[in-house]
Design a protein around this nucleic acid. Structure first.
Length: 799
RNA sequence: GCGGACGUGGCGGAACUGGGAUACGCGCAUGAUUCAGGAUCAUGUGGUCGAAAGACCUUGUGGGUUCAAUUCCCACCGUCCGCACCA
């Protein structure tokens, strides 16, 4: 008998599957459809990560099983290829991003194919292909038309190293997500997408989908909806009104100051002569501070008095107006009412600057600290005695009646900065005309192709490298025919990934983003798996874009993804992140070469709970290789036997059941453990295991370890592919145990075990239990208080 | 500070709905095979006491509910992830 040698068989089967087009999805098939999606990879220069292999292998197992169950499966693959890493790589090496992308894709493709993943390669897409990004641009034009894409002059997060504007989502801990340089501010005219218009629907429609709870929670948190009241504070000696948002309008009688963000438009006007110098210095300094530094300041609060006052709308008291950089300019209008007695932050601020601390909600002690809970109102005029809940309603109504305020909903979510000052992205299809303003490129002129140039270094001025290409920039205005200039900003790398899963449905279509009938057939995606790190980025953005496309009747449903699961990352053996600089990267090529793709796939499923981060362990890989070797011997050995005993048949059906249940729950690790147990049992009684069993075993194994299963299937004399076999259903008769081990407990401690019929009656069980020697020993001379019988499980004697 | 997850052998981890704690794998030990190493196979492997039979202890800590708790409740300690001066 030949020993298991994966290198000899894997390539052969990969070629056969490809040649026969075994995994092609069929549009409009009569079979029930399932659209199963993994996040398409970014083809970086580092090659495939074992982390890619982890989630892809797991989903491939699900896909292969579902095909055998009779589903028409769409399991596609493509490349999310625009973006900074490639551009940076190009700048460093002098290799054009397009060429680098092509080379990287070739490597990724070879690596993915060497894993035997059952993608439908005929639907491969690439976001940098003009035929693809034509439609990315088309979506932008539609957004523009509906007023959801607009330009504005805003201070944006600016990475001084990448020389690029960043979305809030790309700033991690005050630093650039890509290069970890502390982020500063720069005011630029930027394209924005109005995701805030969809904030409510993005929250509400989470009810309709099946996402992990933590994903829903994170998205809601990110959108940050809060209910409150906006109150108008009129400035003394002026007609200016400062609008203040608060969730605690019940504390308005405790206001002893008002604080504006340094960027607030009224700051200059409100600053009196004698405070001018002080204030200017303060603003200058706080502007110099990056967000990163602001956060690092240990929450020490600083501020300066403007010299002006305003009126509290509820009691007409004069309230001093301050400026402080703890107030966020972009949230709630950039103005905060300070209630030291009932807010921790305000308390600190008041202590530092000697502001009055006035209790207006009873229950705390203003000498000790802020009391932030709800209570009953005091020192609040006609509202005294009301509970906070009631007061919030009453005061809001009172303000509203006098046109001094109104109820308001605030979100943390902000509009999405959609401009990037880079070369390697989709050009924004807009032409600027001095007469007509921003004019959309006519749809018939799409795509606006990215010009192929030699130099793509950032200009550093805030303009993209495209600004230097005059013959591309200078065009006629499509509206008036006059002089126009192309928009030189490009889109962020999220643009292409917003809608890519729609393109898989109809990847060659040149007339529309995708045929509407095909969209209707395949969408929504039934199961989408990806990384947790995309929860507030890609996942939220793409839901927004899809909802927009639904509104303009392109997308067929309200939500794009029916189910969302997440995998944990794969760490290096030392528990750190895999990184070239640590020299701890595991290259999947080496694992495939030394142990085979099946071992890699099974190991990555076995290594730990799917949703949990886990460290690589090469010893563990060896263990899985051993298991597959044992399985190989087991199958070939036992295939010569004619008959199988009942025990192994039962074990097989139990295994079958376990796989069915576990896969839906993404419990891949225990599924593999069940296979190992089965093979251990099989080898123990190998003379009593026959061909019928090993054939069925191979069918069960095939989604997980496709190459070895296909090869053994052939060696057993089958002529058709194992993947044309039907997935089996466990036989309930064989699942039913006839004999069970009944546990006998004395006072909850296991003292004996007895083999009994599964449906033994209570009387018989008791009788049997008490007749046991061990039980007699433990109960001798003791008073028996109680006997508990759990059918099919145990008997507990309380003494 | 807020939101979420979690704490089980030397290690990764398992345990359905409250019913045998430590499945499966790694590692380790002993033996077989081998000139040797590797590979493979067999057996053993939570702790303490014991020659053994066996007894007792053990799921972060302390308490509670229960015939029975890794699982449920309360308090505390600790770890990880996300957000974070959001008014």
């Amino acid at each position: 008998m030949e020993a298991y040698n994966p290198v000899k068989i894997e390539k052969k089967w990969q070629e056969t599957w490809e040649k026969e087009g075994s995994f092609k999805a069929e549009d409009f098939s009569k079979k029930p459809k399932k659209y199963i999606l993994i996040e398409f990879p970014y083809p970086s220069g580092d090659g495939l990560h074992v982390g890619h292999a982890r989630s892809y292998s797991a989903l491939d197992a699900i896909v292969r099983k579902k095909r055998m169950e009779g589903y028409n499966i769409l399991f596609p693959i493509g490349w999310d290829a625009f973006g900074l890493p490639t551009e940076n790589y190009a700048i460093k090496t002098g290799i054009h991003p397009q060429k680098a992308t092509e080379e990287n894709i070739a490597v990724f493709k070879r690596q993915l194919k060497s894993l035997g993943l059952s993608f439908d390669w005929s639907r491969e897409i690439n976001t940098t292909d003009p035929k693809y990004y034509k439609w990315t641009q088309w979506i932008f034009l539609k957004l523009f038309k509906e007023g959801l894409a607009y330009q504005t002059e805003i201070p944006i997060n600016w990475c001084p190293s990448c020389k690029i504007g960043l979305a809030n989502e790309e700033v991690v801990g005050g630093a650039c997500e890509r290069c970890e340089t502390p982020v500063g501010k720069k005011t630029l005219k930027q394209w924005m997408l109005k995701i805030t218009a969809y904030a409510d629907r993005l929250i509400e429609d989470l009810e309709k989908v099946d996402y992990l709870e933590k994903i829903k929670a994170q998205q809601k948190e990110w959108i940050g909806k809060s209910y409150g009241t906006e109150a108008d504070f009129k400035v003394v000696w002026s007609n200016e009104i400062i609008k203040v948002f608060t969730t605690r309008i019940d504390t308005i009688f405790g206001v002893t100051a008002l604080v504006l963000a340094p960027e607030h438009p009224l700051v200059e006007k409100l600053t009196t002569e004698e405070n001018k110098e002080n204030l200017e210095r303060y603003i200058k300094e706080s502007r110099k501070k990056s967000d990163f530094e602001r956060e690092k300041l240990e929450k020490e609060k600083t501020g300066v008095f403007t010299g002006s006052y305003c009126f509290n709308p509820c009691n007409n008291e004069k309230v001093p107006i301050w400026v402080a950089d703890f107030v966020i300019a972009t949230y709630g209008g950039g103005a905060v009412m300070v209630v030291p007695a009932h807010d921790y932050r305000d308390y600190d601020f008041a202590k530092k600057y000697g502001l009055e601390i006035r209790e207006v909600v009873s229950g705390g002690d203003t000498l000790k600290g802020a009391f932030v809970e709800y209570g009953n109102l005091v020192n609040s005029g006609q509202f005294n005695g009301l509970s906070s809940e009631k007061a919030i309603e009453k005061i809001a109504a009172w303000l509203e009646k006098r046109k001094l305020g109104k109820k308001k909903i605030q979100y943390k979510l902000r509009d999405w900065v959609f401009s990037r000052q880079h070369y390697w992205g989709e050009p924004i299809p807009i032409i600027h005309c001095s007469e007509c303003g921003a004019v959309p490129v006519p749809e018939k002129d799409l795509p606006v192709e990215l010009p192929y140039v030699e130099k793509y270094q950032p200009t550093g001025t805030g303009e993209s490298p495209l600004a230097n290409i005059t013959n591309w920039v200078d065009v006629k205005c499509p509206k008036c025919g006059g002089k126009g200039k192309r928009e030189t900003d490009t889109m962020p790398n999220w643009a292409g990934s917003n809608w890519y899963y729609m393109r898989y449905v109809d990847p060659e279509n040149d007339n529309t983003l995708a045929d509407s009938k095909k969209l209707k057939y395949w969408l929504p995606v039934d199961w989408y798996n990806g990384g947790m790190e995309h929860t507030t980025l890609h996942l939220l953005y793409s839901r927004f874009i899809y909802k927009f496309l639904y509104d303009i009747k392109v997308a067929p449903s309200a939500e794009p993804y029916q189910r969302r699961t997440s995998h944990g990352i794969v760490l290096a053996e030392d528990g750190r992140k895999m990184s070239k600089s640590f020299g701890n990267v595991i290259n999947p090529d080496n694992i495939v070469r030394d142990f085979g793709a099946d071992t890699l796939r099974v190991y990555e499923m076995f290594m730990g709970p799917f949703d949990q981060a886990i460290a690589w362990n090469t010893q563990g890989v060896k263990g899985v290789f051993r298991f597959l070797g044992r399985a190989w011997n087991f199958v070939l050995d036992c295939s010569k036997n004619k008959k199988s005993n009942k025990e192994i048949q039962k074990a097989l059906h139990k295994l079958n059941k376990k796989i069915d249940e576990n896969l839906e729950a993404t419990k891949f690790n225990t599924t593999i453990a069940a296979f190992m147990e089965f093979v251990n049992l099989g080898l123990e009684s190998r003379s009593e295991v026959g061909r019928d069993i090993v054939e069925k075993f191979l069918i069960l194994l095939s989604p997980f370890a496709p190459h070895i299963s296909e090869e053994l299937w052939l060696q057993l004399g089958n002529s058709k592919s194992i993947f044309e076999e039907e997935w089996s259903k466990p036989d309930p008769k064989l699942l039913k145990e006839e004999v069970i081990t009944m546990i006998v407990q004395i006072n909850g401690k296991v003292r004996d075990k007895i083999e009994v019929e599964a449906d033994i009656s209570e009387e018989k069980a008791k009788e049997l239990a008490f007749s046991q020697e061990k039980v007699k020993k433990w109960t001798e001379g003791k008073e028996i208080k109680k006997v508990i019988f759990v059918p099919g499980r145990l008997i507990n004697i309380v003494i």
